[in-house]
Amino acid sequence: MNELPVSEADLQAYADGRLPEERRSAVEAWLAARPEEAERVTAYRRLAHEVRAAYETMLSDPVPARLARAASPRPQWRRMAVAAGWVVLGIAIGAPVGWHVRPERTVTQLVPDNAVIARRAAIAHATYSPEVRHPVEVGADDEQHLIAWLSKRVGVKLRAPKLEEAGMSLVGGRLLPGDNGPVAQFMYQSQNGRRLTLYVRTEASRNRETAFRYARENNVGVFYWIDREVGYALASADLSKDELLRLANLVYKKLEP
């Protein structure tokens, strides 16, 4: 009866999921009576999702050396390069010698293949773990859907291990572009806000198992391993190496068939 007027700005904010609760219900009621408008808003949401997906590969694209250099102040650029770490020049894991004499190269060329997962996982961690409003695409409250969706896209049956006994609870997950197809990222968080991400991708060469390996990419620590057709990388910028190792063991145990 006493319908509040709904503005175009309300509809945009509604499409972006940014309306406060009470306003949202008002807009929903308004839309319920107007199927054409409802369809338009649905299309906006779908387009937003598609636009994000369309440009997502840029986030994991190796940063060209010229940009890495531009991000460093000229006068003390060497010192800064050390501080700025992997993106600047690409410190190869296992081959850290000589990186500073070849500033022209991009990261990929220096990193051995099996360490790429660690770098990708670290980049993904550095990109999404600081997010306050949108750390994940699908939240843990919809875990079933999250697992089903990511399993389908990544192409293997995934599980998000329960890490409550280590004080980490699942925040949710998202789909990322990877070198050999889509990759899943699960995000966990402790009560005091420390974050951990589990990066899961399929491996091209099957029937391979590796021990845990550790890499430190900038300020992100990563334990990574391959278990048959699946590669895992557990990353955190907030945990010590020992804490991360304990969690990696727990994850490994929980993922045992």
């Binding site: 994991s60 460093s72 102040p73 800064m80 700025a84 600047v88 980049i123 900038n218």
Partner: peptide
């Protein structure tokens, strides 16, 4: 400097 690098992607 660190943040700048992180924001490049």
């Amino acid at each position: 400097a660190k943040r700048l690098v992180e924001l490049i992607p």
